Amino acid sequence: MVALLRHPAVRIAPGICYGRTDVPLADGWRQSIPALAASLATIAAQHIWSSPSSRCATLADALGSRLTLPVTCDEHLTELDFGAWEGRAWDALPRHDLDLWAMDPFAFRPPGGERGADLIARVSGFAAQLRIAAQPCIVVSHGGPLRVLPELLCDTPPSLLATPPLVGSLRIVTARRG
Rank of each mutant, 00 (worst) to 15 (best):
G143C: 04
R66N: 05
D61L: 07
P14R: 12
L149T: 08
G178A: 13
S169H: 11
G168R: 10
D22M: 02
R177G: 08
D61M: 06
A84T: 10
R66M: 09
V123W: 04
G116N: 04
D74F: 03
I43P: 00
V123R: 05
T163L: 09
S159D: 14
Q31M: 06
R171K: 12
W85Y: 08
E79N: 00
S124Y: 01
C154T: 14
A37V: 12
L5K: 07
R20G: 09
H96M: 01
L77M: 07
T21N: 06
G178V: 07
Y18D: 02
I132L: 01
D104W: 04
M103E: 13
P34R: 09
D99W: 06
A134P: 02
L93P: 06
P165C: 10
R115A: 15
R109Q: 08
I33T: 06
P8L: 15
S159V: 01
R11P: 03
E86Y: 05
A89M: 07
W90F: 13
C56P: 08
C17I: 15
D155P: 04
A162S: 15
E86A: 00
V2Y: 11
L152P: 02
L5V: 15
P164F: 13
S65V: 13
R20F: 00
A44C: 11
P111S: 04
W101R: 10
L149S: 03
H7C: 12
L100G: 02
R6L: 11
A26S: 15
L161Y: 01
L63V: 12
A9Q: 10
L130N: 09
L161S: 14
P110G: 03
A102S: 14
T68E: 13
P158V: 06
S53Q: 14
A127H: 03
T72D: 09
I120P: 11
D104K: 00
L161W: 04
H7Q: 10
V167G: 05
S39N: 10
P34D: 11
L40A: 08
G144R: 03
A134G: 14
L161F: 00
S54H: 03
W29S: 07
Q129Y: 01
G143S: 09
D118E: 10
A92H: 01
M103D: 14
D91P: 05
W85K: 01
T156Q: 04
P111T: 11
L36I: 09
T72M: 09
Y18F: 02
V139H: 05
A45S: 14
W101K: 00
T174G: 00
A60E: 03
F106L: 10
P70R: 01
S53M: 14
R95F: 07
V148Y: 07
E151M: 14
P24L: 05
V139P: 02
P105S: 07
G19M: 05
G83Y: 09
P52E: 05
L119T: 08
W101A: 13
P150I: 07
A35T: 12
H7R: 11
G144P: 12
Q46L: 10
P70S: 04
G83C: 11
E114A: 07
D27E: 15
R176C: 00
S141W: 06
G83Q: 10
I43S: 05
A102D: 10
P14M: 03
D99M: 13
A60R: 00
I120M: 13
R66V: 11
V2D: 00
L149W: 08
A37M: 11
G125T: 00
G168S: 12
D74N: 04
F106T: 12
E114R: 11
I132A: 06
R88H: 15
F106Y: 08
D104M: 04
